[in-house]
Each structure stands twice: as structure tokens, then as C-alpha cells.
């Protein structure tokens, strides 16, 4: 019976110590990666482009890489007609960007998304083997064939994130998710 009285006291002492513990690790398990290790493993390229590596490439260079690295084999000679997803809109003049199709180098709101995906996911079976220059060139080529940038524009670490994509901010922001709340108030009524 006595222990029942002691426990709440012990608990409240434990609770009092939580704010202090929250500042430091509780278990001390896990290894601290080196800065080089983080740099090597971190391939995420966010909308600001801050993680982009040095390098550059134009659509003309990208067109050469598109053929030499086998992109054309799956995606078609000019971005259409292959077995893999098309990379160029079949309805390029439609004023509604959404109606032009779900094509990465056209509908992505940021050019960094195109760069990131080519870099991490292409080409099939040789993912991660493209050099930064090749990825800048391929990004430029795909943006050029979709009418986003001129053929002679050179993309690099500094200007890639600033490319104005056709979608702009014409998309719905993601919902501000909170636990235990309905997805959409009043849905379906």
C-alpha cells in the first residue's frame, strides 16, 4: 500500500526532469556521422537549390547526353514515343498547364525537382552515375523541349532554382495536418 503513495511522487519527479532531458539525448544510442558522410549521402535538392553541387549544362549538351546515356531508348528520341513515361507534352499550347499532362519537366513547380529526380533515379539500372554537368545538361534539355527555357540557356548551381516554371504557384498547398482531425470538414456533407 505504501508503494502506491510513493509512485506518484516518483512520477512527478520524473516529469519534472523531462524538460532538461529534452535538450540532450536520452539514450545516447546512434553514431554521429561526419560532415563528409552527410554531404555524400544527402542527395536531396530542395526548392531553394541550396544543396546543388557546382556544375553547368545547356540543352545542346543535354541532348547529346540524352542519346549517349540511353535516355532515348526508353523515353523516345525527343521525349515521346518510348515505353517509359513521356517527357514532352502532346498538348504544349494548352493555356491550362494542368491539362498539358503530368510531365515532370513541365508540371513540376521547381526546376530543382527535375534535377533531383534525374540525379537520384536515372538512368534505369545505372542510377546515381550521372555527373552534375550531365544532370544540369539533361535538365536544360528537358526544360527546353517543353518550352520552359531557351535552347542556349546554361543552367548551373546559381540559376537553376530561379527558373520560372509554367505551373508557378498554381497548385493547392498541402493541408496543415493535425492528429485526430477529419481530412476535410463537412466531407461529404
Amino acid at each position: 500500500m505504501a508503494s502506491r503513495r510513493v509512485l506518484p511522487v516518483a512520477f512527478s519527479l520524473l516529469m519534472m526532469s523531462v524538460p532538461v532531458l529534452a535538450q540532450g539525448p536520452t539514450y545516447g544510442i546512434g553514431r554521429t556521422p561526419t560532415a563528409e558522410e552527410i554531404r555524400a549521402r544527402d542527395i536531396s535538392i530542395g526548392p531553394t537549390g541550396e544543396e546543388l553541387p557546382p556544375g553547368k549544362g545547356s540543352a545542346k549538351e543535354g541532348a547529346l547526353t540524352y542519346r549517349s546515356k540511353g535516355c532515348a531508348g526508353c523515353h523516345g528520341a525527343n521525349g515521346t514515343g518510348g515505353a517509359a513515361p513521356i517527357l514532352k507534352s502532346k498538348d504544349p499550347t494548352n493555356p491550362d498547364v494542368w491539362a498539358r499532362g503530368r510531365i515532370l519537366p513541365l508540371r513540376a513547380p521547381f526546376a530543382t525537382t527535375v534535377w533531383d529526380y534525374i540525379n537520384r533515379g536515372m538512368p534505369l539500372n545505372r542510377e546515381g552515375t550521372l555527373t552534375p554537368d550531365e544532370v544540369y545538361g539533361l535538365t536544360a534539355y528537358l526544360l527546353f523541349i517543353n518550352g520552359v527555357i531557351p535552347e542556349d540557356q546554361v543552367l548551373d548551381q546559381q540559376n537553376l532554382a530561379a527558373v520560372k516554371m509554367p505551373l508557378g504557384d498554381n497548385y493547392a498547398p498541402l493541408p496543415d495536418w493535425k492528429p485526430r482531425r477529419p481530412r476535410l470538414k463537412g466531407y461529404p456533407y
Binding site: P47, W98, L104, T113, R120, N170, Y171, A172, L174, P175
Partner: peptide, 19 residues
């Protein structure tokens, strides 16, 4: 961060995005 998967999740309509 607008990864490839995130780009695939974009919606035009706010209510569709909520669903």
C-alpha cells in the same frame, strides 16, 4: 521539399488536396 513523389501528389483543387 517537392521531391518527385511530392510533385505527383500535387492537386489543383484545395479540397482535393485535403483528401
Amino acid at each position: 521539399y517537392m521531391n518527385y513523389n511530392d510533385f505527383g501528389h500535387l492537386d489543383q483543387d484545395k479540397k482535393e488536396a485535403a483528401l
